[in-house]
Amino acid sequence: MRASPADQTILDRRNLDWYIDKVVQVLVFVGGISAIIFIIGIFVFITREGIGFIFSSWDPIEFFTSPRWAPTSSHNPTYGALALILGTASVTGLAMIVAVPFSLGAAIYIGEFASGKTRESLKVLVELLAAIPSVVWGFIGLSILNPLIIQWFNVPIGLNVLNAGVILGLMAAPIMTTIAEDALKAVPDTYREAAEAMGAARWQVIFKVVLPAAKPGLLAAVLLGVGRGFGETMAVLMASGHSINIPTSIFDSVRALTATIAAELGETAHGSDHYQALFVLGIFLFLITFLINLTADLVVRGIRNR
């Protein structure tokens, strides 16, 4: 049973299992870095399609300051994205005004007040809400909310900032609720117990202890909600009215960055200025969402390092 040094040399050979293990390790590593490869790939390929336009006829001043997006104009095509940026911003902004208080409120209720079966079923319900596809939300905006807005507010068109904002708010709320609830859950119970032992009421514990401790996580939830609203395509395309406007009221129809790409890409010739300009919008969207996600990540990391 005891192995002599000679036996050991036999034992110490690298066998098939050893080589299989190494091969798997390499394969798994490739899978591991695939996310990085893909995110770089996305940037490279959309830049590859749009870069020609950036260096030839793109005018950054026009892009950011002119509200005139008229790429199909035969004599004077212009590529001002201001109205689109403001369209996206107004819809996202309204969505956040609608969604943030309700999401945080719901997260506090689910995380701090509800218990047992109520809590479980509410969480399941919120998860199901988050699963409804965006094209269905767009359809709801188009065919249910649209006539309601016309009727309630006595306006000619119900496809506007209000409609898209509410739809987007309803879409973003479940996701924000889930992330915010996770942030509340991450606050150690010892904090709550310590405060309750000192005689604080539950609402005092929530406002004085739990919320401050969970603040970065809640902020990240809001940021990710903003990112989601910013990048939403189909629902905004269908519910916002899709007309180029600098919005002055919530009853104005607007057009979003994402929706512009979705609506126009099919009609452009490959390689044309218009086609490339849509990819430039894509690059812009990519960079903004990257920035939002990066910030959210740093905010969350901030808690861990503290």
């Binding site: 005891r2 192995a3 002599s4 040094p5 050991q8 034992l11 110490d12 050979r13 690298r14 066998n15 299992d17 050893w18 293990d21």
Partner: peptide
């Protein structure tokens, strides 16, 4: 172990099996 440095094993799984 048995006179052989455990870090000299090329196949450390074989070592662990013993």
């Amino acid at each position: 172990v048995s006179g052989k440095d455990v870090r000299s094993w090329r196949n450390l799984y074989a070592l662990r099996r013993r």
